[in-house]
């Protein structure tokens, strides 16, 4: 029985070796892992312990990757993929929430904490869970609006400048540092900062325009 740690490391290697199917498998796996980790975070935060929002992607990296066998390159790839996946998760969640709201359907909150915790323990081979499975609200209504709007804007930005859109994806959705983003995209930190500053100005402006 291969553990998830092996799988992620192996998938990264396969992907690097040119196996395109490995990427989609990797994303499916990360989707489930990151999603359950995000929920775990919400629960943990409520109960106790951490105060800062921690970069989930970093935690996922430590949890899922066999640290001895991972190269700097693999690490960069992992962060890149994980950021995309985080974006997918949050956008899926935001959209589901917004559509539920528009449909007038109340948010379902489970009272069974044990059952709830069990979701995060699910093995990876189970069906990909839908947002309706969530027992703990990952993001609130306002954040849902924001994330949804940002997702649209990022798609527009990607047409103008794909790399810049990736920078935003990593910084905003992945929570990566400038250094990590630079490594993931094989560009200098100075470039990341410039891209980020310009993209942020553009996004702020476009968001403000959308509100008017």
């Amino acid at each position: 029985m291969p553990t998830s740690a092996l799988s992620v490391t192996q998938l990264l290697a396969h992907w690097r070796g040119g196996d395109a199917a490995a990427l989609s498998q990797l994303m499916t796996l990360l989707y489930q892992e990151l999603r359950s980790m995000a929920h775990e975070h919400v629960r943990r935060e409520r109960r106790d312990h951490t105060l800062q929002g921690t970069a989930l992607v970093n935690e996922a990296f430590v949890r899922l990757i066999n640290l001895e066998s991972v190269s700097v390159k693999d690490r960069a790839h992992f962060f890149a993929v994980a950021s995309t996946v985080m974006r997918r998760i949050l956008v899926d969640y935001a959209r589901a929430r917004l559509s539920a709201k528009r449909g007038g359907e109340a948010q379902r909150i489970s009272s069974d904490a044990i059952e709830d915790a069990r979701h995060s323990q699910r093995p990876h081979d189970e069906a990909q869970p839908s947002a309706a499975d969530d027992d703990v609200p990952l993001i609130d209504a306002r954040a849902s609006e924001e994330i949804s709007a940002l997702d649209d804007l990022l798609s527009r930005l990607a047409i103008l400048d794909e790399r810049q859109a990736r920078v935003v994806e990593m910084r905003y959705f992945g929570g990566l540092t400038v250094e990590q983003t630079a490594q993931a995209l094989s560009i200098s930190e100075a470039t990341v900062k410039r891209e980020w500053v310009a993209a942020r100005a553009w996004l702020r402006r476009e968001l403000a325009r959308a509100e008017q």
């Binding site: 929002g53 970069a55 993001i139 306002r142 954040a143 905003y172 942020r200 702020r204």
Partner: peptide
Amino acid sequence: LIAAHEGPPSFIDSPAIEHAPLAS
């Protein structure tokens, strides 16, 4: 764009995962 740069911060200034209630 310069005005936006110098204007008030927006939610994009901190990573998504630090949004409420994650950083409650």
